[in-house]
Structures are given as C-alpha cells and as structure tokens.
C-alpha cells in the first residue's frame, strides 16, 4: 500500500542502507545494543549538562545503578515472555503475593515464623507456581496472555492483601536488609545480583535448547511447531521462570524496606514495560535479549534520576515515561509481522 508516508519511509531506508554499508555503519551493526548505548550516551549528555555535571558524579552513578537493580530484575523476567511473543501483566500481582509471603514467613513482628534463608527458594516457588498458572492458562486453556495475566494480577493482589490484612508487616530478620544496602567494591550489591541474573539469562538464551526454542517460537510459532519445537512446554517453562524471578524481586523489595506490604507491587509494571521497549526488545517477539533488558532499564532509571536531579516536577514523571514508552514501541515494532495492530 503505497502512500506518502511509505515513500518517505523508502527514502529513509535507502539512506539507512547507505549508512549501514559504510565503515561506521559496520561498526554500529556489529555491536548488538549499539543503538541503546548511543541513547544512553545522549541521556547522560543532556542530564549532565542540565545538572552541571552532577549527573555524572560517581556517587550519582552508583545511586542510579542501585536504583536500577530491582527494575532490572523485573525487566529481565518479563522480557523473556515478550520474546516468546506473549505478554505478562501479572508482574504486580506476583510481586505482591511473594512480598507478603516473605513478610509473613521471615522473622517478623506478626507471626512466629522464621524461615531465614529458606525464603529464597520459597519465594521462587510461589512466584514460579503463579507463573506456571499463567503458562497453563495460555497454552492449555488457550487464553490470550494479556487478559489472563491481567486477571491473575488482580486475583493475586487481592489474595496478598487478604493475607496481610491490608497492612504492612515489619521485618525482624535484618540479615537481608544488610545485604541489600551493602556494596561490593563500591558498587551496590543488588546491582551486581541483577547483572549476575542477566548473565545467567544471557547464557540460557544463547547456549541452551530452551533459549533457542524460545526465540523460534517468538519468530513464528506455527513454523516452530512444525519444526518440532515443543511450544506448550517451552511457554509454560518461560512463564514459570518469569514468575520465579518476580518472586526474587519481591523478596528484594521486602529486604530493602525491611517490611512487606501488598502495595509494594504497585507501579512496577509500567517502568518494566518501558525498559523492555526502550531496550529494544520487540513486542512482536523473537528479537532482543538479556543485554537489551539490562540497558533498557539503565536508560529508563537514569532518565528518571535525571528528571529528579533537574528538579522537574515529580508528577511529570508518569507523563515522561508514558511518552518514552509509546515512542520506544513505535520505533521498535516490526510492522511487517503484525499485519493487524489492535
């Protein structure tokens, strides 16, 4: 369908191919997340100018890295479902329920539990189970993932509030908070944990059958199935894995604030989705990976940090993030794949 726009798009793509062919272009294409690195550079430039260099102070950089840790973990979780070509909006609900569970099972002022380090596998189990349900609803009951995960989020959030009776539970087991606040060689430990998770997922995506098949499904589910990929099994596994990682994030949130409440899950979906899109993971599926999730999160967190430093009205943040989300998706969506955009 040729329209005025497609003609200018053609000129754009001719220009693009000319640039691509050049030496600079070759360098650009050989580095996987080069576009995002440049964007980060631009963000850093704008904000360091706007804050007279304060933005790029080592202490601020460390702050940004520390702030990015939990969103990065969430982004690492959800981006895999998106690579599959599905959607997972249950992030907030699963975090709520794992946070509340952690609050009640660790040594706290309300119940007599004290599971200590066992909480780590426990939250992963709870999150993983919730994720498995998501996977089953999508594969066995053949429900579109975005509504089934949305329903799950509401359900789990409600359960979380019921269990916690709507209030926050102070934690008495202080070990976790110590770890969260600590630093390792000057870098916040949480950030290192997030990067380690990113590394694990990177290896999984590139060096295991699960990873390769995940990309195959995202590329074209029907063809992948024809080639023998066990689509249902992989989808359920990925949803489950995603749920487990949400669980870890929930635990970290509890550790950081030394208390737990169901509302800790709130307002986490939006930044995670923005990070996914900004990082270059295509909503159509099959494209992007852990690297994209990591850099996408850093860009979004840095952006918000910059806004705060420049003392831009905090309530503008939602608007800025909204615009960034829409723009990022506009740029990365593969229109050839999605014949019909709903």
């Amino acid at each position: 369908m040729k329209t005025k726009n497609s003609r200018s798009l053609e000129n754009l793509s001719t220009l693009r191919s000319k640039v691509s062919a050049s030496a600079v272009g070759k360098l650009y294409h050989s580095i996987p997340i080069s576009g995002q690195i440049i964007s980060l550079g631009i963000v850093a430039l704008i904000f360091s100018l706007g804050t007279n260099g304060q933005f790029l102070h080592v202490s601020n950089i460390m702050t940004v890295l520390g702030l990015s840790a939990i969103p990065m973990i969430l982004c690492l979780a959800v981006h895999q479902v998106i690579i599959l070509g599905a959607m997972d909006l249950s992030l907030e609900g699963i975090v709520a329920i794992t946070a509340v569970s952690a609050g009640l099972l660790l040594k706290n002022s309300v119940t007599g539990n004290d599971v200590g380090l066992w909480i780590i596998p426990i939250v992963m189990l709870i999150g993983g189970l919730a994720g498995l349900v998501n996977g089953l609803l999508n594969t066995k009951l053949r429900m579109p993932s975005f509504i089934s995960t949305l329903g799950m989020s509401w359900t789990l959030f409600g359960v979380a509030i019921m269990i916690s009776k709507g209030s926050s539970i102070p934690l008495r087991d202080l070990r976790f908070q110590k770890v969260i606040i600590s630093e390792f060689l000057g870098i916040p430990t949480v950030f290192i944990l997030a990067i380690l998770l990113g590394l694990v997922l990177y290896i999984m995506q590139n060096k295991t059958k699960l990873g390769k098949h995940m990309y195959a499904i995202g590329g074209n589910e029907i063809l992948a199935k024809q080639a023998g990929v066990k689509v249902d099994r992989i989808k359920i596994s990925i949803f489950g894995l995603t749920g487990m990682i949400y669980g870890l994030a929930g635990l970290l949130l509890v550790a950081r604030l030394n208390s737990s409440a169901a509302r800790y899950g709130n307002n986490l979906l939006f930044p995670a989705m923005t990070a996914v899109a900004v990082g270059g993971v295509s909503l159509s599926g099959g494209v992007g990976g852990a690297l994209n999730a990591v850099i996408g999160t850093i860009i979004v967190v840095a952006l918000n940090n910059g806004l705060v430093l420049m003392q831009i009205n905090p309530y503008m943040q939602s608007a800025v993030n909204g615009i960034v989300l829409i723009s990022a998706v506009a740029l990365t969506i593969d229109r050839n794949k999605i014949g019909i955009i709903k």
């Binding site: 060096k207 295991t208 990309y215 195959a216 590329g219 992948a224 024809q226 080639a227 023998g228």
Partner: peptide, 29 residues
C-alpha cells in the same frame, strides 16, 4: 518457506536437534 527469520542459518539448520552438539544443558556454538 519454513525458515525462521529471526534465527541464524546455523540455528535454523539444527532446530530441535541441538542435542547433537550439546554437553548436558549447554550447546557448543
């Protein structure tokens, strides 16, 4: 064609037969 455009030639050639190249969980690229 049944080739997945977002995978490499190698990945498409051996899709679902990765175990020929793996030790345990890890594939030798």
């Amino acid at each position: 064609g049944s080739i997945l455009p977002n995978l490499t030639v190698t990945e498409n050639l051996f899709l679902c037969h990765e175990k020929e190249f793996s030790k345990g969980w890890f594939i030798s690229e």
